[in-house]
C-alpha cells in the first residue's frame, strides 16, 4: 500500500488541501443528488396519484374504496414476500456459508459465479420457467398440503389444479431474490477478519462454534442488509408474479394453495396498466405509492435493527 516516507514539501500540502476539498465536495454533491432524484420521483407520484381518490368502485375492481383496494393488495404483497423470505433466509445463509467457509475453493468459485449469473435472468424468464417447470412440479405438493395440513387456514383448499398459486409465486420470488442475497452474504462472511477466525479455531472451537462466535456476529448488519435487498426485490417484482400467479381481481385470501389467490401490488399494476383509462392510471400509480411506502417502512425497520445490533469485531 501507499506509504509516504518523507515530510512533504509545502506546495504538496496545499495540493493536498485542494485535493481533499475537491474530493469531499464531489462526494457531498453526489449525496445531494440522491435527494434531488428522490424529490422528483415523490412529487411526480403525488401529482399523478392523488386523482385516484375520485375513482368509482367500477374503476377499483369493485372494491368499496381506494383504501380497501390498496389494503387487499398490500395483504397479497406481504403474503407473497413472507413466503419468499421464509425460503430465502435459511437458504441464503446456508449457501453463503458453503461458498465462503465450507466448500473447497474449486467448488466455491464456480458456485459463486453461477449464483451471480442468476441475478441477471430477466423476470420474464423466471416467469416462463415458473409456468413450464415449477408450477407442474409443485402441484402435487399443493394437494398434499390440503390433504394433510388442511386444518391450517393457509392450506384450506381446494388445491389449484395448475399449481399457479401464491405459494408457487412465493417460491419464484425466493429464487429471484436468492442470488442477490447470497452474493452479499458471502462477501460479508468472507470479510470476517482472518485473525478472529484463527483465534477461535486455535482455542479448539469446532467449525460451527467458530462461525457462531466470529462470522455471524461480525456480519450481522451485512446479513440484514442483504436480506432487505432481497425483500425489496420480492416486494417490487412485477412480471414473474403476473405470469405465474393465477390471480383475478382483488381478493383477500389466506389460502396460499387455491387458485383464488390474493394479488400483489406490482402484478396488479402490470396487469392493469395496459388497458387503463386516465383515472385507472391514477389508481395504479396510487397503488405504486403504497408499495413505495411499504418497502420504505420495511427498509427502515431493517436498517434500525441492523444498526442497533451491530457487534463491532
Amino acid at each position: 500500500m501507499t506509504a509516504v516516507r518523507e515530510e512533504p514539501p509545502v506546495q504538496e500540502v496545499a495540493g493536498r488541501r485542494i485535493g481533499d476539498a475537491v474530493f469531499s465536495r464531489a462526494a457531498l454533491v453526489s449525496s445531494l443528488l440522491v435527494i434531488v432524484f428522490l424529490a422528483g420521483v415523490a412529487v411526480f407520484l403525488l401529482i399523478k396519484g392523488l386523482p385516484a381518490f375520485d375513482a368509482e368502485p367500477d374503476q377499483l375492481n369493485e372494491r368499496s374504496s381506494l383504501w380497501s383496494l390498496v389494503g387487499a393488495l398490500l395483504f397479497g404483497t406481504v403474503l407473497a414476500s413472507i413466503i419468499a423470505m421464509l425460503i430465502v433466509t435459511p437458504l441464503s445463509i446456508g449457501l453463503g456459508l458453503v461458498i465462503s467457509h465450507y466448500a473447497p475453493r474449486r467448488i466455491a468459485r464456480p458456485v459463486g459465479f453461477l449464483v451471480d449469473l442468476l441475478a441477471a435472468v430477466p423476470s420474464v424468464v423466471f416467469g416462463l420457467w415458473g409456468i413450464i417447470v415449477l408450477a407442474p412440479y409443485l402441484q402435487p405438493m399443493h394437494e398434499w398440503l390440503v390433504d394433510n395440513l388442511g386444518w391450517l387456514p393457509f392450506f384450506d383448499g381446494p388445491a389449484s389444479t395448475t399449481g399457479r398459486t401464491i405459494l408457487t409465486a412465493g417460491v419464484v420470488l425466493a429464487l429471484m431474490a436468492l442470488p442477490i442475497v447470497t452474493a452479499i452474504m458471502r462477501e460479508v462472511f468472507a470479510q470476517t477478519p482472518r485473525a478472529h477466525e484463527e483465534a477461535a479455531l486455535a482455542l479448539g472451537a469446532t467449525r460451527w462454534e467458530m462461525i457462531r462466535m466470529t462470522v455471524l456476529p461480525y456480519g450481522r448488519s451485512g446479513m440484514v442488509a442483504a436480506l432487505l435487498l432481497g425483500l425489496g426485490r420480492a416486494l417490487g417484482e412485477t412480471m414473474a408474479v403476473a405470469m405465474v400467479l393465477s390471480a383475478t381481481g382483488v381478493v383477500v385470501n389466506w389460502d396460499v394453495v387455491s387458485s383464488q389467490s390474493s394479488n400483489t401490488i406490482a402484478a396488479y399494476i402490470a396487469l392493469g396498466y395496459k388497458e387503463a383509462s386516465p383515472i385507472k392510471v391514477s389508481v395504479l400509480i396510487f397503488a405504486g405509492l403504497a408499495l413505495f411506502l411499504l418497502t420504505f417502512v420495511v427498509n427502515f425497520l431493517g436498517r434500525w435493527i441492523a444498526t442497533r445490533g451491530v457487534v463491532k469485531g
Binding site: 449525496s31 440522491v34 435527494i35 432524484f37 428522490l38 422528483g40 420521483v41 411526480f44 407520484l45 399523478k48 432487505l228 435487498l229 425489496g232 416486494l235 417490487g236 412485477t238 401490488i265 406490482a266 399494476i269 402490470a270 396498466y273 400509480i285 405504486g288 408499495l291 413505495f292 411506502l293 411499504l294 418497502t295 420504505f296 420495511v298 427498509n299 427502515f300 436498517r303
Partner: peptide, 24 residues
C-alpha cells in the same frame, strides 16, 4: 444529521417500484 437524512433517503429509494422509475 445530513448523513442520517441521506441514509434514510437511500432506504426510501430502494422502494421505488421499477415502473415508477420509468414513468418518472
Amino acid at each position: 444529521r445530513l448523513a442520517g437524512v441521506i441514509t434514510f433517503l437511500v432506504d426510501v429509494m430502494t422502494g421505488i417500484p421499477s415502473i415508477v422509475a420509468g414513468l418518472f
